[in-house]
């Protein structure tokens, strides 16, 4: 095996060590922030991977990426303009961008030029070295991202104000209707249940206004999460919670 091949092999092994199929928060913020986060994610993808992006509004975009190029997108191989508009549609009205990376069954065709991320960045007037990438995600962002597959809908409040929400239309509407105006009361009661402790905590109730779900309430630092979680996922939530705490 050549030195070059060993390098690529090591990169592949490292990539395989990352948690599989777990949505990761790429970026929170404005549409421009999300667009920048998306291009930076692609810019950091050297190996051939399928990147499945999604947002808190429910939009999604899947692209195959290799060596900082999009070699296959929702728009086909050469649809640069379509790709630009697909990215615009993805982030429209959203404030949180998630990604899941999958390996591909076949290696990238080295003769396929694809769309270089630098070309997209230039077209969108995005600086790929923008330090926005360093924006620190909150512990609640990490918890929500790791628990996301088990959550039907959620609201996150920061210092008492709704900071973001996500979910299927009906559960999300119910969540807002039932709990949306009670975040202060919920924080107060959760503090009582924790006997005054300000440590992070997560409460799950086996009761919910939505069928086959439970209510989850969590506070971490100055953020409050109120969510509907699938009825069978309490154990899974416990695993996500303690994985993050550790």
């Amino acid at each position: 095996m050549t030195k070059h091949a060993r390098f690529w092999n090591a990169l592949d092994l490292l990539a395989d060590a990352a948690p599989a199929n777990m949505p990761r928060v790429v970026m929170t913020g404005s549409e421009d922030d999300l667009r920048t986060g998306l291009l930076q994610e692609i810019d950091q993808t050297i190996l051939t991977r399928i990147l499945s992006f999604s947002t808190n509004t429910g939009t999604a975009l899947e692209v195959t990426v290799s060596s900082r190029r999009i070699i296959e997108g929702a728009s086909g191989k050469d649809g640069f303009e379509t790709l630009v508009s697909e990215i615009g549609y993805l982030v429209e009205g959203a404030d949180t961008l998630f990604v899941v990376a999958h390996r591909t069954a076949h290696a990238a065709d080295p003769t396929e030029p694809g769309v270089a991320v630098s070309r997209l960045a230039e077209h969108m007037s995005i600086d790929l070295s923008d330090p926005i990438r360093a924006k620190k995600l909150s512990p609640m962002d990490h918890f929500v991202a790791s628990a996301q597959p088990t959550l039907l809908a959620w609201l996150v409040f920061c210092d008492g104000d709704l900071s973001h929400k996500y979910g299927e239309t009906d559960p999300l509407a119910k969540l807002e209707e039932v709990f949306g105006a009670s975040s202060d009361d919920i924080i107060e009661e959760l503090t009582q249940i924790l006997q005054g402790s300000t440590e992070p905590a997560c409460l799950i109730l086996d009761a919910s206004p939505v069928a086959d779900s439970k209510v989850l309430v969590s506070k971490i630092e100055n953020e409050l999460l109120i969510a509907f979680v699938g009825a069978d996922h309490a154990t899974s939530i416990a695993s996500h919670w303690y994985a993050l705490q550790n």
């Binding site: 039932v178 109730l205 009761a207 416990a238 919670w241």
Partner: peptide, 17 residues
């Protein structure tokens, strides 16, 4: 929180600290 969640009595609650 329990009364908002359901009009029926809540039978299980768990707290992860």
């Amino acid at each position: 929180i329990a009364s908002l969640a359901s009009a029926e009595p809540t039978v299980e609650a768990m707290v992860f600290g």
